[in-house]
Amino acid sequence: MTEAVLRTRKLRKEFGKGDGRVRAVDDVDLAVDAGETVAVMGPSGCGKSTLLHLLGGLQRPTGGEVELGGRRVETMSERALARLRRDRIGFVFQAFHLMPELTAVENVEVPALLAGRSPRAARTTALDLLDQVGLADRTGHLPSALSGGQRQRVAIARALSTEPLVVLADEPTGNLDSAATAEVLRLFDRLHRAGQTLVVVTHDARIAATADRILSMRDGALVDQTVLAGAA
């Protein structure tokens, strides 16, 4: 039994007040083991993106606990939280969020530079990661000169640049066509095999099917689980 890298206990997030109060995340207990890929699926508005934001310290819970790498996240100072997000978590978003004025390799090395790595080391790592995502020949391109699938692969390389404990992905194929989705799919499959811990929130059954476990979320709660790890 491997140790959980990411864990929540009775995690809860409410929005609004009084009668208009909505429980977006309702008593979620979750444990993600090292090297495990977990997908969270559910209808729009079920709270899955909010859950991911709580896991990544992008939002503070109303109640309950989040633990990453053995450290409590929800009680951290803003400063410590910012450092944790920068150094220990890789984020991948639906809309890529690349910096338009930076080239692919510059985008990928930003987190490593912010984390205090030397420019030379950051560049070497960034070039290596772009090679791993199949973009060795696009390192000097601006995002505007890349296809959607290529932009998302740059964003995934960036998410990996600080060797994060966990990569959190929010609808990573939401803006991509079928061919670009297949590119991201292959990449996630490779990351999974390489032992990267990954939590992905998605509508896309194909992405979810690369996971070890798929959790179904409804009205803020985890209601069902499909275990895919093992036999195949």
């Binding site: 799919l185 690369t210 069902d224 499909t226 895919l228």
Partner: peptide
């Protein structure tokens, strides 16, 4: 839910 679990397994196999 049960049917979805089964189809996700089939999807995983087909995709692999």
């Amino acid at each position: 839910d049960a049917q979805r679990r089964e189809l996700l397994r089939l999807l995983r196999d087909a995709q692999r």
